[in-house]
Design a protein around this nucleic acid. Sequence first.
DNA 1: GATAGCGTTTAGCATTGTCGAACGCGGATG
DNA 2: CATCCGCGTTCGACAATGCTAAACGCTATC
Lengths: 254, 254
Amino acid sequence: MPKHIQSLERAAAMLRLLAGGERRLGLSDIASALGLAKATAHGILRTLQHEGFVEQDPDSGRYQLGAELLRLGTTYLDVHELRARALVWTDDLARSSGEAVYLGVLHQQGVLIVHHVFRPDDSRQVLEVGAMQPLHSTSLGKVLSAYDPVAHSELVEVKREPFTARTVTELEDVERVVDETRSQSYATDYEETWDGVASVAAPVFDRHRLAVGAVGITGAVERVCRDGELRAELVAAVRDCARSVSRDLGSGPF
Amino acid sequence: MPKHIQSLERAAAMLRLLAGGERRLGLSDIASALGLAKATAHGILRTLQHEGFVEQDPDSGRYQLGAELLRLGTTYLDVHELRARALVWTDDLARSSGEAVYLGVLHQQGVLIVHHVFRPDDSRQVLEVGAMQPLHSTSLGKVLSAYDPVAHSELVEVKREPFTARTVTELEDVERVVDETRSQSYATDYEETWDGVASVAAPVFDRHRLAVGAVGITGAVERVCRDGELRAELVAAVRDCARSVSRDLGSGPF
DNA sequence: GATAGCGTTTAGCATTGTCGAACGCGGATG
DNA sequence: CATCCGCGTTCGACAATGCTAAACGCTATC
């Protein structure tokens, strides 16, 4: 008795392959990338297409992801309890801090952004809901790594890429950062992921006191930092927000 | 030789079932809803869970949609050519019209919103990307039904629900509306979907002159209408925007 | 107008997913 | 506190199911 259904695993691999490759992929590319016979890949793709999970460009015959994924992905957000509880608090945080607010959960080997409140000014910003952030260099990732054992093991196993000159990648150093995060119960990212950008984040707990996510703000170092440190009032605001959401989720007093 | 892979179809049906039911569903609910043995449903769900497409609540054992769907759905948007080309033009349209802008494509039996620019004021608005709109009562839907044969057949077949007192549901009347849309090359929705809300939309064509989507604005009747009609300057702005996007997609001059 | 590559279809085989029944567990119930 | 029902899960056998390899038609290229 197989542990997992083969055709489903292959279909999932195809979707992930299509999501990874920047461009549309041909059937032969897909088949060879996954080590499948062309006909096998075709059968799976035909079904995925019929269900709306992939689309085929009529001109080139190449495949790309389908619209049904967008619909279902949005529905995922609608049902997401953490996100629903956080909506009002993150709005407040964005207003009081004047910076963009992110809410993230652990997903695979990174942080999946499930909510994003724009910085409250009239600049053009792109919504990052659905995007992933690394565990080792962002404040959201550090917080999750510190409080979620699964996230921590992912952090250890994953290849930690250096994004800037300040990125901490060595396991020993990363562990020290995580310990520090645990002791102060929040994390920062001072130009460790993007040059000129800093962030703070704090953990959100559910009714079992398990870390189910992290909230934080991200902004230009000139605004959110002073003397090379995150401004204390911003740290306090983020931690307040995280506590409020945790309380809404049924987590007891700290 | 089966036309589609059974296990994949069943998995897709499960995802759609989970997306439909407002709350988490138990294994027995899912199995009986799809007419499957519990063990069969369990095997599929186990695989879907392992791939991140569904998640299981540890407390209740119930299932809900998984985070991987959000990630893939967002990736779909990143690759979407129509959306990419439309970004700048829809921004302009929102600014010049002062109203919320929507970009939609045909998906299944409705319009899937793939881009949404907030009305440029400081009011609180929720992003509707990934949401569906009906074909028969919205301006986006009417435009698609008028220019996309597939959309038109869906319009004919689907159950046309009356949302307000003004909603047109009879096939004969709907066909007349679609003909009118074709002749004036844009469509309106005057309180046919939501009370107090009106919209205008125009078609976007690709390099083959096929209608691949529709852009439009939506707003309170008090703002976007005058004397019971959509304001002419707004209609012109929407049609200009649609033409600009079409040109960017390689569609020739009109 | 031959060739090479593409996506697609075909047919047969055995792998693979399905089924019905039984298991262990937790929360209702008396 | 014992009982029972319902849940999610596991088991093992069967045959239907989806896989493989080869051949097909097509378009684009040289």
